[in-house]
Design a protein around this nucleic acid. Structure first.
Lengths: 214, 214
DNA sequence: TATAGATTGTTAAAAATTTCACGTAACACA
DNA sequence: TGTGTTACGTGAAATTTTTAACAATCTATA
């Protein structure tokens, strides 16, 4: 199928297929059917076949999908078959945790710079990276070849951080601060806010309570 | 409108309305229109009116919504007009960051217990909480009155953590580990995986590149 | 080489969600 | 009190997303 506009939900799901396929691959599984994959990530088998169809034909009829091949194909489709250089703005609790988290690097996102505007933090070393003044972002981003920015500042500083990142030439931003940011249209932005998920759970618990399920 | 089944997306959006209304409230704004709110969170005004209609009529025609009233109403609808007690299983980098984050408490989620299975971590104190053995979850959850569990273990230990939490009687789980967990149907589960968002940004950057937008 | 069994890719139907459009209600002000 | 203006609530239309159904095709085996 042609890659007409691809639903955002499809992209989200592809990301979880990657997780599962990577596990399967490590466990030495060679082949997986859409049904098997579907069970593993709690969706409908047709959904999976349709999602994949946006990008090409990766399976073999009567057989299923070769785990390694499919993994490679999805990664290629998502553009994560390579390493992306990432800079972080805001070295608070959350920032530190992300800097120390191995998962980012393991998934191909290499933290190459850490920035903060707090003079007390500047010069500090976190997870092998020196913390620089946010004002030096533009100057340093070029030589570090930063492509993606992660914002982990307090909400009030998020827009400024975004401005710095855009000036520094990043092409995408993942914003952990709970505010919208304004950036040019050709900059890809994603918002991460785990409080939403807590709200969601609280709501569903309340719902279950009112339905007498608990 | 009657509260027929409420779309998950609606709940997600309500959560962001809360964020914005709280800011507006702090800034002393008294009234906001669906259009103003829509602009602030990047959605369609009708969307907002429809979302709210699932829970009741909170606005005044010709005027808009009284910020404080709407905030109260949404919080009540979501079941976040009270404090929820939360236990965390897995005190790694991410767990620590969450424990130290003020935002959880500020939003009404009180961390009342921290658990880990690593003997080196047990007994340690993080953000004013002593870390206990995960095995003691069931025993302690009762007296701590834990209602929600947060899983921040490595993926392989997530299912075990979930089992402990369910045995301990929690009614909802927020899982930060990148794996599905199996729990009884009446337990509300939410998955948080920020790697997905990085994937998404990477994909959109690749897309923009191929469209010649960059 | 033919047949049986399995599982994909794809089209069509169904369901869910979003957007539009407009009647209705509230306020401001003459 | 009447009139104009604003902006909500809601039913219907449009769009998007998900699910179902099935023809196509691959492997295995006799």
């Amino acid at each position: 199928m042609k890659s007409s506009r691809i639903p955002r939900a499809t992209i989200q799901r592809l990301a979880s297929y990657v997780q599962i396929l990577e596990t399967l691959s490590q466990e030495g599984e060679k082949v997986i059917s859409s049904e098997g994959l579907a069970r593993a990530c709690g969706v409908n088998p047709s959904q999976i076949r349709k999602d994949l169809a946006y990008f090409g034909e990766f399976g073999v009829r009567g057989v299923g999908y070769y785990v390694q091949d499919l993994l490679t194909a999805i990664k290629q489709s998502l553009g994560i078959d390579r390493v992306w250089n990432v800079a972080m703005v805001g070295v608070g609790n959350l920032g530190r945790a992300l800097l120390r988290h191995k998962i980012l690097r393991k998934r191909g996102f290499m933290l190459v710079g850490a920035f903060d505007c707090d003079p007390f933090k500047i010069g500090e070393e976190v997870a092998g990276l020196e913390v620089y003044s946010s004002k030096r972002l533009q100057e340093m981003a070029g030589e570090l070849n930063v492509e993606i920015g992660i914002i982990t500042t307090p909400p009030k500083r998020a827009q400024r951080a975004a401005n710095y990142l855009v000036e520094a030439g990043v092409k995408g931003i993942v914003n952990f601060a709970p505010v919208r940011i304004d950036v040019p249209e050709n900059i890809a932005v994603e918002y991460v806010d785990f409080i939403h998920h807590l709200f969601s759970v609280a709501f569903n618990i309340s719902l279950n309570l009112s339905k007498g399920l608990i």
